[in-house]
């Protein structure tokens, strides 16, 4: 069996909405999950059960209340639940990619630049980064006339493909995918499935949310059920 890439232990998350009368939403508690290199795990459960919350917590975009998120990183391990900001950013730069459900567009930054950025951040020269970004956009059927434009005006499907290109280009050892094919047609879904299978063969550990049962069957090794949380009486 391949080595562990990600190991989550005792994870707990609740939201406290102070501006709304202090309402508490308990999302999960005592959550354990281990993912090996080359493995693809699909988070499963009804809408609102906490799939996106878990992915965001793994990326340290959301804080957690307890537990650890150990990530194999730079010849050692980093704990995304506790690491300093600069250590988290280093994990994101070199180890962990995240394709969010919706692209967060940066005003005025063109699609090609957005896709190339993860490479640029690793010190790859502009020219090479741009040519690889172009190749990835072409593979995802984003027409070349759009590459120089900021994606704010793109269709949902085009934005999502820019987002996917950005997520896959850096060939990270761990990849988090939040419904990457939701807005795509069959041809582009097939491209994404190929990209995922390629990354798996290269040893990337993947945690994803996949609405589309066909894609899920094609790329996932197992389901991870987020148990509906029962509020203690």
């Amino acid at each position: 069996m391949n080595e562990l890439a990600l190991e989550v232990g005792g994870l707990a998350k609740r939201f406290r909405l102070h501006t709304q009368g202090g309402v508490e939403i308990e999302v999960f508690r005592d959550l354990d999950l281990a993912v090996r290199a080359g493995e693809c795990v699909a988070l499963h459960g009804p809408s609102g059960c906490g799939k996106s919350t878990l992915l965001r917590a793994l990326y340290a975009n959301y804080a957690v209340d307890a537990g650890s998120i150990r990530v194999r990183h730079a010849k050692g391990w980093a704990d995304m639940a506790r690491a300093e900001p600069r250590a988290i950013l280093d994990v994101r730069r070199r180890t962990m990619g995240y394709v969010s459900q919706f692209l967060r567009v940066i005003p005025r930054v063109p699609a090609l630049e957005i896709v190339a950025e993860p490479l640029r951040q690793r010190g790859i020269a502009a020219e090479e980064a741009h040519s690889r970004a172009g190749a990835m956009l072409a593979r995802l059927n984003v027409p070349e006339r759009l590459w120089g434009l900021a994606p704010a005006t793109f269709s949902g499907g085009e934005q999502q493909r820019v987002n996917i290109a950005r997520g896959f280009i850096a060939e990270m050892p761990i990849l988090l995918l939040d419904e990457p094919t939701a807005a795509l047609d069959a041809a582009n879904r097939a491209v994404v499935a190929d990209l995922i299978l390629e990354r798996k063969r290269a040893g990337t550990a993947i945690v994803g949310i996949f609405h589309d049962a066909e894609i899920r069957a094609q790329v996932c090794d197992r389901l991870f059920e987020i148990a509906p949380f029962k509020v203690a009486a």
Partner: peptide, 21 residues
């Protein structure tokens, strides 16, 4: 205090939640 996107997307302190909302 913390990572920018975490503080903005999952603010913990009542004042930060107010600021973000």
């Amino acid at each position: 205090a913390g990572l920018t996107d975490q503080v903005l997307d999952d603010p913990q302190h009542p004042y930060t939640q107010l600021l973000v909302s």
